[in-house]
Design a protein around this nucleic acid. Structure first.
Lengths: 182, 182
DNA sequence: CGATTCATGTAACTTGTTACATGATTAG
DNA sequence: CTAATCATGTAACAAGTTACATGAATCG
């Protein structure tokens, strides 16, 4: 049973103890969004699909008649098969700040600095958010990774900023508007 | 003129001096794929769209009658508008290794170690690839970022691996298969 | 009682992937 | 000559986003 990208979080989070689509969304936002997002438009249809395929079962429970899911033995097997599979680990990033860095030849140092400052600022916001989650007592390794990464990232961009400023103090050597060479 | 995600690389790369859809694909693969991918199915239709909207012009040239594009003044304006815009920088990651780390409570230490080893291995492959590009003489900052990140990343996972191994040598304290608490 | 949060969903749309088709040119 | 690379595209599909609709329960 091949799991779709969204099935991996959805099934995984139910296995970790989440019960409803709503719970999954909340947990995704505070825990996995940084490396694995999912919207309602993905989650609810995916839950339905997984139940149709027999990897989950649900029943409406409690005063709010929430649709609570549990993992079936087949779901358990599918999940473990994925977790122990050695297929290449799927990785992809979209980073607009890095794209702007890549295109830095098209702009002047002022623009480059503005980009860096914005990156550092957004980095700080993300870090602040992660720290509030850390403060709730979470000891999850993935959170630790997120925080460590953001700290490293802040450092990298600050060093780049310093290089930019050092260069700005001296007269430019090679033309800022020279024909692109790459 | 709002640029679509793919329009940002496509227009940007033409502005940097790439000429054809094929060139763009090649450059994406060796330069931006790490933080901004694009497939033929995106690139060619996007080039058409950008020409229809007047941000690019093309003509067939050379012995191969390649369709070569250039940025129009309107394209230049659109590109600069985006590069100097201070809208939040769009960032997203899908990282299967981190998702498995997040779900680590579902598996035993052996599985956790296998995951880490695979991550480190894939990290080394990526690093090797980047170094071959570096060896071609590229001094692009975005490449430097990629290499620095991969080196940091390798270190993080190796430290995690050491923590795992240290823990494995002592009897487990809290149950590996305990109910999820997060 | 009114605002917020809980809770489930869907429709329209955008974005991106994969695999295929086609053919010219160049390198060995 | 033939394999590889250059070169342009498309169709079918998969995945993901956004915005909206709906209503119950709870908090202040």
């Amino acid at each position: 049973m091949e799991l779709s990208p969204t099935a991996k979080v959805v099934l995984g989070l139910i296995a970790l103890g989440e019960r409803t689509g709503y719970d999954i969304k909340r947990t995704v936002e505070r825990s996995t969004a940084f490396f694995w997002g999912a919207s309602y438009g993905q989650i609810y249809p995916e839950l339905e699909r997984l139940e149709r395929d027999g990897l989950l079962v649900s029943e409406r429970r409690g005063p709010r008649r929430r649709r609570e899911y549990r993992v079936t033995p087949a779901g358990e097997r599918a999940l473990r098969a994925w977790l122990s599979s050695r297929d290449p680990l799927w990785f992809s990033t979209r980073d607009e700040g890095l794209l702007k860095l890549f295109l830095a030849d098209l702009v002047d140092d002022g623009e480059r600095l503005a980009n860096v400052r914005q990156i550092v600022e957004q980095n700080e916001e993300a870090l602040a958010f992660f720290r509030t989650i850390e403060a709730t007592g979470s000891t999850a390794e993935a959170l630790a990774y997120g925080i460590d990464f953001l700290e490293w990232n802040a450092g990298w961009w600050r060093r780049y900023e310093r290089r930019l400023r050092a260069r700005a103090r001296k007269p430019p050597r090679s033309g800022t508007s020279a024909p692109a060479r790459r």
